[in-house]
Design a protein around this nucleic acid. Structure first.
Ligand code: MN
Ligand code: MN
Ligand code: ZN
Ligand code: ZN
Lengths: 122, 122
DNA sequence: TAGTGCAATGCAACTTAGTTGTAACTTAAT
DNA sequence: ATTAAGTTACAACTAAGTTGCATTGCACTA
């Protein structure tokens, strides 16, 4: 288990389990948000999807993981970082993390998703 | 059938049916995006959900209607207008149409969804 | 080291928004 | 009115995510 993941467990005072560290390790090594199937493929540890989703829910409530819905009715997950937007291409379905400068918005913004056609598909 | 809806049928050269004009009439009178259940409640004409979704898909492909996913795993629909963003409150689940000034983005943006906590819930 | 309690897991059954196949029915054009 | 092409209802289906519950594993104490 990497130092970064260990630090997350320490900070939030939750039990270290194979399932949990395996999920977080995958997310740490990803450079784009991933859905359940994609994470499952990359995980060392086999686990039931119930276990996966329950742990993801816990991570979310602790602010460790951030999720959003794409246009395929699936949730995509990534380790929480500074707030940034995601651009989802409706043609090739690739997801890109991007920075957007946004004017004032009422309320606390926690997630920004843009959809459209990416440069490559245009 | 209102003039505005009639104009839409004329422009796109699709068959006028009770189901279609009923859906569009509801969307025209709404001041916020609506999901299937909400539209169903407001519709004059009863129709099967298969009919509803097939018509919505047609409207979408013609650019008449725009849809996006909220945080409740439901699709929300509105008549296409000039591009604008939607703010979805994760507490009270209200959806607000907003204008955002956004920096340059690679690709064609067709939809923008922000999620977070609205002013009232904060 | 054995015993206790509580949280995490696996499994199977479930939920539900949206989809699909198809036969019957409408629409709009002639 | 006739007709072909498009639209509809109905019922069966799909699949991401959820839930109940029995079992397992972990930390703490005696
Ligand atoms: Mn990202
Ligand atoms: Mn809007
Ligand atoms: Zn693309
Ligand atoms: Zn709110």
């Amino acid at each position: 288990m990497s130092e970064q993941i260990k630090a997350i467990f320490d900070k939030h005072d939750i039990k270290i389990t194979n399932a949990r560290s395996s999920i977080l390790e995958v997310l740490k090594n990803a450079h784009t948000p991933l859905n359940y199937e994609q994470i499952k493929e990359k995980m060392e540890t086999m686990m039931d999807k119930a276990t996966f989703y329950r742990n993801i829910a816990k991570f979310e409530s602790l602010g460790i993981v951030h999720k959003f819905e794409s246009d395929d009715r699936k949730w995509y997950f990534e380790l929480s970082t500074s707030i940034h937007a995601h651009f989802i291409c409706e043609e090739c379905h690739q997801i890109k993390c991007i920075d957007v400068s946004m004017g004032e918005v009422e309320g606390d913004v926690k997630s920004i998703v843009l959809k459209g056609t990416c440069k490559a598909c245009k």
